[in-house]
């Protein structure tokens, strides 16, 4: 099993990001960056598939700047075999990034390309299906269960109020949703070994953005609400306010 996993460097979900003063960009000062949490599910799945197959390799790939090397090292520390940094800027919409990744993937050998379902910075949910379309591969997104056998994949994907089952012949694309597995932590040995694993760098140039960022704003502050009262005695007043003031009942 040869597997490619596309990963992205994103701000930690705990971090406070804000519109920058010029309202043209996002202020990520002092923010801690991590491997996109959904991509951890993708890496874990790749490692398990490789382990189950008994042979193969897991290659992690990212489009980003030099600081994305740290993200690739975290993936190597989890157990991936090699990493590829496509050096260039990501696009605002998913397509430019998908084009660079598709280019980076073409010519490599793979049975499966894994993604996270969503990058928690742009929240685009675009790149995996776009890469699939560009490479003319079958694809299942938002996947919570994956089985691979005899050159075929069966993926269970989340839809409103239930699931869909998607079947296809390999090679193909799968985007991981939470629930797919429980990602392992990098061991100390893994972290040490990661430093010695191959990390290939390719200058690919900046991705094209088909969207233009006009303005970034912070969401309207919710004014701290009102404490209606304490204990069950406050309930009738709450219900009255919901009905008469907020008009939501």
């Amino acid at each position: 099993m040869k597997i490619i996993v596309c990963v992205k460097r994103v701000p930690d979900s705990e971090s406070r990001v804000n519109a920058a003063a010029d309202r043209k960009s996002i202020d990520t000062q002092g923010v801690k960056f991590v491997l996109n949490p959904y991509d951890e599910f993708a890496i874990e799945e790749a490692l398990r598939l490789k382990e189950a197959a008994g042979d193969g390799s897991v290659t992690v790939m990212t489009l980003g700047g030099d600081d994305s090397k740290e993200t690739l090292r975290s993936a190597l520390a989890m157990g991936a075999d090699e990493a590829v940094l496509l050096k260039g800027q990501t696009s605002i919409d998913g397509l430019g990034t998908a084009e660079k990744l598709a280019e980076g993937i073409r010519g490599r050998e793979y049975d499966l390309i894994l993604f996270g379902k969503q990058a928690i910075d742009d929240d685009n949910l675009q790149v995996p299906a776009m890469v699939a379309e560009l490479l003319e591969l079958p694809c299942a997104t938002v996947v919570v269960e994956l089985q691979v056998a005899d050159g075929r994949a069966t993926a269970k994907r989340e839809v409103e109020g239930g699931h869909e089952v998607v079947e296809f012949a390999l090679p193909g694309v799968v985007a991981a949703q939470k629930g797919l597995n429980e990602p392992r932590y990098a061991s100390l040995k893994g972290i040490m070994m990661a430093k010695k694993k191959p990390l290939e760098e390719v200058d690919v140039g900046d991705a094209e953005s088909r969207l233009e960022l006009i303005e970034v704003t912070n969401p309207p502050e919710r004014s701290a609400g009102e404490i209606v009262g304490e204990g069950p005695e406050a309930v009738p007043e709450l219900v009255r306010k919901l009905r008469e003031q907020a008009k939501v009942l």
């Binding site: 990001v17 804000n18 910075d121 233009e212 960022l213 704003t217 912070n218």
Partner: peptide, 16 residues
């Protein structure tokens, strides 16, 4: 659209 899980909102134009 919201991004960063709703921590910011983006106003976007279309170039294509």
């Amino acid at each position: 659209r919201p991004a960063y899980a709703g921590k910011v909102f983006l106003r976007l134009g279309f170039k294509s």
